[in-house]
Design a protein around this nucleic acid. Structure first.
Ligand SMILES: [Mn+2]
Ligand SMILES: [Mn+2]
Ligand SMILES: [Zn+2]
Ligand SMILES: [Zn+2]
Lengths: 121, 121
DNA sequence: TTATAAATGCAACTAAGTCGCAATTAAGAT
DNA sequence: ATCTTAATTGCGACTTAGTTGCATTTATAA
């Protein structure tokens, strides 16, 4: 996944901030919040959120609200559901695809909440 | 569903605020946020949230975070999934039960996000 | 190069929810 | 019926995630 290619395809300017953000998300195996990465990036949070916003409208990233009031972002790739632990707030990408249809509705995401293995003791 | 019975079973004090909150949630066909009902209640928001919190630990209510940064609460009854429209933020209770197991995880809730009938045009 | 629209940093702001504290009240004991 | 006391309440101040206005900077293409 080439950052320059992604940016050029969407006709966006390739800035240092955008490179930093995309590198982080491309390398990450799980969704990240601003809070997760604020120490690893050098831009202002306004810049972070404005770029995230643009990446979302361009479908480069997508996001969901977790249980902890934070929004989590990840690269748009193979669609998959997420498991959120209500106890430790950890998020797992579920690779096993869930086939789910609801008539008169278009399903985009599935979030499953419960207790993860660690927290079950 | 008798409010007095619910309160007494959990050994809570029956206050005016609690009556107001429970009446609203018992009558509602869908989950509600503080913002949805703040005009309909007479207590302070701190009182609302403290009572909601107590009701959640007593399993009288349960809640989830939607797409709009607000938390939604509903009476704990028959377990069911929720559909959240990403466009209009409306929430629907899905009565058709979804059978879903993930090994080494306890599933409590399922949130499905997408586009509702209204928003599909 | 230079022009210019887009992007950035900063600070001030918003909105949902939380907390400390003094005053009030529900409910059991007298 | 009144007293006692822990639980509950209202208020205001606070926290936290994210947003916005504006002056400055920068990526791109003419
Ligand atoms: Mn994922
Ligand atoms: Mn419901
Ligand atoms: Zn966990
Ligand atoms: Zn909708």
């Amino acid at each position: 996944m080439q950052i320059e290619t992604i940016i050029q395809e969407k006709k966006l300017k390739l800035t240092a901030a955008r490179k930093e953000i995309l590198e982080l998300f491309i390398d990450s195996q799980k969704p990240l919040s601003y809070d997760d990465i604020k120490e690893s990036i050098s831009m202002d949070k306004a810049t972070f959120y404005r770029n995230i916003s643009k990446f979302e409208t361009e479908s480069i990233l997508h996001s969901f609200e977790s249980n902890d009031k934070k929004r989590y972002y990840e690269i748009t790739g193979t669609p998959h559901a997420h498991f959120i632990c209500k106890e430790c707030n950890s998020i797992e990408c579920l690779e096993e695809s869930i086939n789910l249809k609801i008539k008169n509705h278009t399903v985009h995401d599935i979030l499953i909440k419960g207790i993860c293995q660690k927290c079950m003791g």
